[in-house]
């Protein structure tokens, strides 16, 4: 399967197979008015299978979102068809308004103006918990 190379934009590579769609949604790529390709289950020597997202526009992607969904992903910045920067991602300590707390007893469920804040509480197991009620993020 061939997807054309991009001239100016961002390629999110080495996404764990199966996480591409979650990343696509959380990055809000479905709302962008530019060419975006989500390629699933690409053969990879290192990973066996991986997902890739290509965004054909010079946009700022939210590294915190990528770090939350898949800290093993890499971000390649493309300018004039060339790779100008390759970034590895770390797990963010805090996530603000990226995901919502699903605990119906949490204060965020009724106070509409509150930010949904999650904090990294267990790096080894990639566990984030709601700052308010400590419910684990899914």
């Amino acid at each position: 399967m061939n997807i054309d190379s991009i001239q100016n934009g961002v390629v999110i590579d080495h996404i764990t197979a199966g996480l591409g769609m979650k990343l696509y949604k959380l990055l809000g790529l479905d709302t962008l008015d530019v060419s975006v390709a989500l390629i699933k289950n690409v053969s990879s020597k290192k990973m066996g299978k991986k997902d890739i997202i290509k965004i054909d526009a010079d946009i700022d992607v939210d590294f915190d979102v990528i770090g939350f969904v898949d800290p093993d992903a890499t971000v390649n910045i493309i300018k004039e068809g060339k790779l100008v920067n390759k970034l590895s991602i770390d797990m963010p300590k805090t996530l603000v308004d990226v995901i919502k707390c699903k605990n119906p007893r949490c204060i965020t469920s009724c106070e509409q103006e509150l930010q949904h804040i999650f904090e990294l509480t267990d790096r080894e197991n990639k566990v984030y918990r709601c700052r308010y009620c400590e419910t684990k993020a899914n």
Binding site: R105, C106, Y132
Partner: peptide, 8 residues
């Protein structure tokens, strides 16, 4: 009654 209310 809501969890986290006191923190807010």
């Amino acid at each position: 009654p809501k969890e986290g209310a006191a923190l807010v």
